[in-house]
Design a protein around this nucleic acid. Structure first.
Length: 658
DNA sequence: TTAGGGTTAG
């Protein structure tokens, strides 16, 4: 037998053993019936493929198998299949004693199966490691997000005297941009130039990406201009760069100049518009893509669904859902999650949970302890989306039930979910549950997170525990404007105006720039503490120093401020000076001030203004009627009630939990 | 080169 044929024969034998072992494993996991490999229509073409292929192709066999089975409704995880196959092949190679020759193939396979730890162990066992071996390991680390590890490996490699190649550099440059290590990246760029290394397009693109990610635009533009054989990737990087900093004209200019736009070009430009608040333009671009552009991929669908969510066009969302089903990319984790998120944001919780339920088998397989790397990474996002969806749709109870299910199923509850849950506890006044979740966070030793801290401060404050809120805020080492605002607003809502202002001044001293919400907190603090002068000062500061346009919330705070200070006369001037007489919320605040000060004439005038804006709302009638009642004007009260009845305005009675 | 979930006001 010729050497080549012998090799094929051996591979065929190996394949048979593999299939037998795999079947056994499926049976043990109770997944036999759903196993696509036992389906004969798949089995024979695959067998043929493997027997005719080289060893390296054989190593990709599980991936190949996965591509074919991913559109069927297999509930067996891909990662498991890959991991199993990889371990199996590894054991065979050890028996054959050919780890020496085939080591880098196997290493590649471990990386593809995302078994980075196993790959590293194998890497240490391989006796002779060349550039190839090192590069597979380094890029494997980089692909799986272990950027520091990759950089450490890189320096080890240099110490051992192995000379890196283009691929090594490309991987390391990716790490530099992810770690924001501009200096290291620049050093590598310089080294390449000094040593006359041929910088091909791919490598140039890595450098371009580094400069873009590290925000050195002049370098990026210079490099972009100087690269002669630019490919579509180079263009896409530059287009994306301009979009990220809001340079819409520049990005569109490049977009128009580019003759061959690929799917990534379109995805970049559509998403970039959406992220810059230009949703309608993004939608038009999407339509343009459907008509004249390349075929949409799963990323396009994901982007489109996010766009639909922000525009709340449920019909379009449904159409996209249909298209996703037809194309058969329903199993993509991102697409699935965007779909759930879209239904949540459009208030369609039933639809959202239906999509979620369709994937339930993925998660229940955990009982059989088969959950893959891919799915364990995707699952918490999906759960989190649904939990958050329930909370945002005011269904805290459903959210909490789902949370309990997650705990029972031992699905990792990540920071995103915990943040939403804490916020829900705050809104519902569920102090005990909030404390339990807080305890859970402390026990599991999650890292400090500014989102979580903000919602925790808010939760404790809303549940009346200002001291606990402070004890979260004080030691926090990752303060941002939202966290400061939460604490300032907490003091404000507890009537501790001077403390809120003290904290605000402290924040300014530390160099934080207040946003519109911060000023709502500060103005509320002033109004609750009767600090008329300070309130006016900060309102001016907001507009003149921080260039923040006053919104309805700020105006109502100001009206409230004048009202509580008993300066009803100032309110009218304020309303006309700021040209806000068309905003009903302002008049409502005014009316409630009239009620507090028992000023019946003013209340009458204000409620007339309010009724011009909202003739069918019960609020103005009720508030005016209450003002009359506090002044014992019972005839007026009766007249108002009659008028309401005549105009068909109904007041829904309030209800209390107590 | 391109994609998903979280915090603060009223």
């Amino acid at each position: 037998m010729k050497e080549g044929n012998e090799r094929k024969f051996k591979l065929g034998k190996l394949f048979q053993e593999y299939v037998v072992a795999m079947k056994w494993s499926y049976m043990r996991n109770g997944c036999f019936s759903t196993n696509p490999i036992v389906n004969s229509s798949l089995f024979f073409p695959l067998a043929k493929h493997v027997i005719n292929s080289s060893f390296s192709e054989f190593c990709h066999f599980p991936t190949y198998c996965l591509i074919h089975s991913s559109s069927s409704s297999s509930n067996l995880s891909n990662g498991l299949r890959n991991a199993f196959a990889t371990h199996f092949i590894h054991s065979k190679l050890i028996k054959k004693g050919s780890l020496h020759h085939e080591g880098s193939y196997l290493l590649n396979l471990y990386i593809k199966s995302r078994l980075v730890g196993d790959a590293h162990k194998l890497f240490d066992e391989i006796p002779q490691r060349d550039v190839r071996t090192w590069t597979i390991m380094i890029s494997g680390f980089a692909q799986n997000g272990f950027f520091r590890g990759a950089v450490d490996l890189f320096s080890e490699m240099l110490e051992e005297g192995v000379v890196p190649n283009r691929f090594t550099f490309s991987s390391i440059l990716k790490c530099c941009s992810s770690l924001n290590e501009l200096r290291m990246g620049k050093a590598i760029h310089g080294w390449l130039l000094r040593n006359g290394i041929v910088v091909d397009v791919a490598l140039a693109n890595s450098i371009l990406d580094l400069y873009v990610k590290c925000h050195v635009f002049d370098y990026a533009e210079g490099l972009f201009e100087s690269v002669i054989d630019k490919d579509v990737v180079s263009w896409n990087i530059m287009i994306g760069a301009y979009l990220r900093v809001g340079e819409m004209e520049k990005s569109l200019d490049l977009f128009r100049q580019l003759p061959f736009k690929d799917v990534a070009t379109w995805n970049t430009i559509i998403d970039g518009h959406a992220r810059n608040g230009l949703q309608v333009a993004a939608l038009n671009l999407l339509y343009q893509m459907v008509e004249t552009g390349p075929l949409m991929n799963q990323i396009t669908f994901s982007i489109a669904l996010v766009l639909v969510s922000s525009l709340s066009i449920l019909d379009l969302g449904r159409q996209i859902h249909g298209r996703i089903l037809r194309i058969g990319i329903y199993n993509d984790g991102f697409v699935r999650n965007s779909l759930i998120d879209m239904y949540c944001k459009c208030g369609q919780m039933e639809k959202a949970s239906a999509v979620f339920e369709n994937f339930a088998p993925y998660f229940t397989t955990k009982q059989n302890s088969v959950i893959s790397c891919d799915e364990s990474a995707a699952a918490p996002v999906t759960w989190s989306s649904l939990v958050t969806g329930y909370i945002q749709n005011g269904r805290s109870e459903d959210a909490l039930k789902l949370f309990l299910t997650m705990v029972c199923k031992r699905i990792e509850v990540d920071m995103f979910t915990l943040t939403s849950l804490i916020s829900a506890c705050g809104n519902a006044g569920l102090l005990e549950l909030g404390q339990q979740i807080h305890g859970h966070i402390l026990k599991t030793g999650h890292k400090s997170d500014v989102f979580l801290d903000s919602s925790m401060v808010d939760m404790y404050a809303k549940c009346g525990r200002l001291d606990d809120a402070w004890s979260i805020f004080k030691p926090s080492n990752c303060r941002n404007i939202v966290l400061w605002t939460s604490m300032i607003s907490s003091y404000a809502s507890h009537g501790q105006g001077s403390k809120a202002i003290w904290l605000f001044e402290l924040m300014l001293n530390e160099g934080f720039r207040p946003n519109e919400v911060t000023f709502v907190g500060v103005l509320t603090a002033c109004s609750h503490a009767g600090l008329l002068k300070e309130g006016c000062k900060y309102f001016k500061l907001m507009k003149e120093v921080y260039d923040i346009k006053a919104s309805v919330e700020h105006f109502t705070c100001m009206v409230d401020l004048f009202g509580r200070a008993g300066r009803l006369d100032m309110i009218t001037d304020f309303i006309y000076e700021n040209d806000i007489s068309h905003i009903s919320a302002v008049w409502k605040a005014f009316l409630s001030s009239c009620q507090v000060h028992k000023n019946i004439e003013m209340a009458q005038w204000v409620s007339d203004k309010l009724l011009e804006l909202e003739p069918l709302q019960s609020g103005p009638y009720i508030m005016l009627s209450n003002t009359c009642a506090t002044n014992h004007k019972w005839e007026e009260v009766a007249k108002l009630r009659a008028l309401m009845k005549h105009r068909g305005v109904r007041k829904h009675p309030g209800q209390s939990w107590i």
